[in-house]
Structures are given as structure tokens and as C-alpha cells.
Design a protein around this nucleic acid. Structure first.
Length: 463
RNA sequence: GGCUGAGUGGCAGAGUGGUUAUGCAGCGGCCUGCAAAGCCGUGUACAGCGGUUCGAUUCCGCUCUCAGCCUCCA
């Protein structure tokens, strides 16, 4: 397989990826609503699309990656009221926190991170177009609604028909709407709520319109890839298509990508279920790269079960890869090796990172063998390994530093203390006091430090 | 009720119409003072029932089970 194929939710099949403009890719991903810390589900979106963007660049595309920030909505207003804080202050705080989590996961910043509140003008003009085109109407309560019946292809993405959906089964039907599935474009403000002036009175944008406005503004009316979590398929992305295509008269997006959920005990991790772990929490016990590896160890569309066992396995797996890279000077390999080809085959098959990662392990095995027998070849092999890891955002750290870095646990023994213990043990070894040497080694092991003797030298790592 | 998707060895997780995934764990060996790391060897997995086929875990049908969406959620 020599060209990239991507599963398109719109057609429910893998398609050969052909960008609209040669050598350029426009990518939009629905980002966070910033009223709380990111959880592992958010981490998955960030990592998955970071890899999509990195791999497209690896293939030589000039990528424009936009990921929006939703910084105005009901939950933000509610949370700001709760904490008696200006909503802007609240959202800025969590934007900063989000950036910290991203950095910990080695997620590169998108090229653009537009804010909904910076896009009010675009949102208003898009709503005006929709009203002019008879795709939207002003309700008796002065809210502006999109009329789903006015858009012929409504339901194309989620594969559902208006008549098949059970309106009002779980949520009261809003009597201001002409059709229960009509959705809000502009919501008029209650007293004390943040608001912006508009032709329909003071208010704020509805949830879906911001993404239509920001994506088309940043990437044009018609762009290549739009991504997000599975749960955004309906109604969010369905509504984005309806709004954008009705407003611009053009095809909106070619390829829709949706990542699967993170689960806890076979149940979706979500805010509403309350069964979520924040990235911040998990970083107390695991390295960011371990979380990243965990995310990439399964295909992005599959469910991903979160558990300590899984994270522990990711830890062991990364240890193996970094250990292979120890004591070898990587050299860029100008020949495309078999490993690289197989890696690309895997990634070209709808970003199959799980399969791609397995190639890294085979490469590491080869590297381990070569290290003693053929140092020059080993260097090239290490170069290959790092080249493959790059688009995955893995193995970017110095092996020794990584292996000795903190695993997040509090109260860990310091590097200096470890050095002291090791020199004590080396003396014991010289004295052939094996009992003492073993005792020191066992004690360090209890503190998460593994010693490895090589001749008269001892190296260590945290595990 | 409608619409998706999934069920793989002890665990996790790819993949394939007939041949080794990969990682972790286990077992045996080499190495080591002993370890660790590494290397070598080692596992008759593909929910069930039918069908197509010379041959199916892989294709088709049915059944069962699970998850997701139809409401805010990545």
C-alpha cells in the first residue's frame, strides 16, 4: 500500500486520501470546552489528531491544523457563576491548564486555535446568510433556530432520517421550534449572562455554529479533514454540515474522522457519568509519554479501556524501546529499510498506530542484536527506530534521561541519593560482600529503582 | 424502536481465505557472583450455529453478548 487511506465516516469506508490542493492538507478538529481539566478522553483526541497531523507532514504535506476552543457555553456560564468568577478568567485558566497537559503528552500545538468568542462577527454573518436563505428563523423567544427540514441532506453523516428519530423521548420539545430537531444558532441572553450585540438582540452563539464559522474562516468553505470524538457525529457534526453547506452553497468537508472512546470498565468515560480520570491525575502516577503510548497502542477508532494494568504495560513497552536506544549513536539512514516500509504501510492504512508500533518493536529487537555484533548497522537501525517514532511523537527524549526520569510518584528517592547507594554497593561488590550488595539493590528496587550491572559499572532506571 | 460498531491465545491488541503479529505475563536455556537488561526457544487463539469454498478466525446469513449514538459530552 503506497498511498494513505482514511476511513471516512461520511461514506463508512476507507478511501484513498486526495487533498483538495496538491501537497496541502487542511485539518480541523473540534477541541475542548474549557471549563474544567482535560480527562483521558480529551487526551485521546489530542494525541490521535496530533499523530494525524504529524504523519501527514511526514508524508510531505504542508498541513494547516486548526483546533478550536469553545470558550462560551452554558456549562462555562454555570461554572463561572458557581466560582463567582468572570467567565473569561475561568476559560483562560483552563486554556492554560490544557496547554500544560498537551505539553506533557508531547502534543504539538495546532497551527491555529481560534476562540469562539473571537469569532462572533463571523458567526453573526453566517447566521444572517442562513436566515436570508430561509434555512433559519427567529423564534418567538428571539432565539434563532436552524430549520433542519430546509436542508435536504440532513442526516447524511450520522446515517439517520428525521422521521426515524424519537424526538422528545428524553428531552422536552421546545415549543419555539418548528421541528423538534431544529437547533439554536443564536441564544438570547438572560440578565447577567455574557452577551454580544446582534441583529436579534444581545445573546451568544449556539454550540454548533461556532465550528462552522471558525473552520470555514480559517480553512475556507471546503476543506479536507474534519475530526473529533465519536459522540460529536450527531448532532454536532451533522449540524455543522447543514449550517455550513446551507450558508456557503459549497461542499463543506471531504473526509470526516472520528476517534473511539476511552472506557472505564467497558463503559464510556464521560463527564456526565462521572467516571473520568483527568490527565493531571494520571500524570501523578505515569509519565506523559506512557499515556501517549497507551493511546497509540490501539487503533484510533476502537474503544480504549483505561486501567492501571494498561498503563503499566505501556510503561514496560516504552522501557523496552528506550532500553534498546541506550548506548548507541543513532545515524540517519538514507535507505528506506524494510521496517520503514512496513511502518508506512501500517500508517497508510487509516493511521494504524497499533500495527505501526509493532514494527518499532521488531526494529528494537534487531537493534539489540546488532549493538554487539555490528555497531554501524546498529546506528542505522537506531536511526530508523527514531524516524518511525517521530510521527508518533514517541521516543523524543534521551534514553538515559527518560529511563531515569520521575514516574510521577511523590516522595521518590533523589538521583543523588541513588548515586550514593550505588557507590556503596560498588564497594560492597569489590569487597565481595554479596549480601550487602544485594540488600542495597533490593532496597532501591522497593523505591522503584532498578540497577543493572555491566562489568564494573552500574546503571539505573526508575520503573 | 431507529442507526452504528464490536466479540481474537493468561492479559492487552493487530491482522489474514491456506504460512510468525507485536507487547506484557509464564515456562526452558544463554549471559551474570546473584540479578537486571538483552538474546535464543516455547503457546493446536479467533462468541455460537449454519452456508459458500478444496480449505474460513478471515466471505455470507442467523443467534447470542457487549458498547456507542438518537440529550450536553472527545
Amino acid at each position: 500500500m503506497d498511498s494513505l487511506r482514511i476511513y471516512n465516516t461520511l461514506t463508512r469506508q476507507k478511501e484513498t486520501f486526495v487533498p483538495i490542493k496538491q501537497a496541502e492538507v487542511s485539518l480541523y478538529v473540534c477541541g475542548m470546552t474549557v471549563y474544567d481539566f482535560c480527562h483521558i478522553g480529551h487526551a485521546r483526541v489530542m494525541v490521535v489528531f496530533d499523530v494525524v497531523s504529524r504523519y501527514l507532514k511526514y508524508l510531505g504535506y504542508n498541513v494547516k491544523y486548526v483546533r478550536n476552543i469553545t470558550d462560551i457555553d452554558d456549562k462555562i456560564i454555570a461554572r463561572a457563576t458557581e466560582s463567582n468568577e468572570d467567565f473569561k478568567q475561568l476559560t483562560q485558566r483552563f486554556i492554560d491548564e490544557m496547554h500544560q497537559d498537551e505539553a506533557a503528552l508531547n502534543v504539538l500545538s495546532p497551527d491555529l486555535e481560534p476562540l469562539a468568542t473571537d469569532s462572533i462577527d463571523n458567526i453573526i454573518s453566517m447566521i444572517e446568510k442562513l436566515i436570508a436563505n430561509n434555512n433559519a428563523y427567529v423564534g418567538t423567544n428571539n432565539d434563532v433556530y436552524y430549520s433542519v427540514e430546509s436542508f435536504e441532506n440532513y442526516g447524511q453523516l450520522s446515517g439517520r432520517k428525521l422521521e426515524d428519530m424519537n424526538a422528545g423521548e428524553r428531552v422536552d420539545v421546545d415549543s419555539n421550534k418548528r421541528n423538534p430537531f431544529d437547533f439554536v444558532l443564536w441564544k438570547s441572553a438572560k440578565p447577567e449572562e455574557p452577551s454580544w450585540p446582534s441583529p436579534w438582540g444581545d445573546g451568544r452563539p449556539g454550540w454548533h455554529i461556532e465550528c462552522s464559522a471558525m473552520s470555514t474562516c480559517c480553512l475556507g468553505n471546503h476543506f479536507d479533514i474534519h475530526g473529533g470524538g465519536m459522540d460529536l457525529q450527531f448532532p454536532h457534526h451533522e449540524n455543522e454540515i447543514a449550517q455550513s453547506e446551507a450558508a456557503t452553497g459549497e461542499r463543506y468537508v471531504n473526509t470526516w474522522m472520528h476517534n473511539g472512546f476511552v472506557r472505564i470498565d467497558d463503559e464510556k468515560m464521560s463527564k456526565s457519568l462521572g467516571n473520568f480520570f483527568t490527565v493531571r491525575d494520571v500524570l501523578k502516577k505515569y509519565r506523559g509519554e506512557e499515556i501517549r503510548f497507551f493511546v497509540l497502542s490501539s487503533h484510533y477508532r476502537s474503544p480504549l479501556n483505561y486501567s492501571d494494568e494498561q498503563l503499566n504495560e505501556s510503561r514496560s513497552a516504552l522501557e523496552r524501546l528506550y532500553t534498546a536506544l541506550r548506548n548507541v549513536e543513532p545515524v540517519k539512514n538514507n535507505v528506506k529499510s524494510d521496517y520503514i516500509k512496513r511502518f508506512e504501510d501500517a500508517m497508510n492504512d487509516d493511521f494504524n498506530s497499533a500495527k505501526a508500533v509493532s514494527v518499532l518493536f521488531e526494529c528494537a529487537n534487531e537493534l539489540n542484536k546488532l549493538k554487539s555484533s555490528n555497531p554501524e548497522q546498529a546506528s542505522l537501525m537506531a536511526g530508523d527506530l527514531l524516524d518511525m517514532a517521530e510521527p508518533l511523537g514517541l521516543l523524543r527524549q534521551d534514553p538515559e534521561e527518560y529511563l531515569q526520569s520521575s514516574t510521577g510518584s511523590d516522595g521518590a528517592i533523589s538521583n543523588d541519593e541513588i548515586d550514593v547507594r550505588i557507590s556503596q554497593r560498588l564497594q560492597a561488590k569489590v569487597d565481595k560482600d554479596w549480601a550487602l550488595a544485594d540488600q542495597i539493590r533490593d532496597a532501591l528496587k522497593e523505591q522503584g529503582v532498578i540497577l543493572e550491572d555491566k562489568g564494573s559499572e552500574t546503571s539505573w532506571r526508575r520503573s
